[in-house]
Amino acid sequence: MSESDVEQCAALVGLPIEPESRAAVAEILTGLLTAARLLMEFPLPGDVEPAPIFRP
């Protein structure tokens, strides 16, 4: 995850991030995406639904 990746992703969600902070955000996001990779490679059965509680 590079600083320019951060700039582009942030633009997609309309979040301005000043240039001097992009490296720090990139480092944190890299850590989160590493955690996500560990998770995404786990083969979940297709019938598992998300867990949030919603009561109408």
């Binding site: 951060v6 979040l15 902070s21 720090a24 944190i28 989160l32 998770l39």
Partner: peptide
């Protein structure tokens, strides 16, 4: 910056 990084996590993740 931790909040900002959180805002960039893909919905699929």
């Amino acid at each position: 910056d931790r909040f900002r990084a959180g805002a960039l996590i893909p919905a699929s993740h």
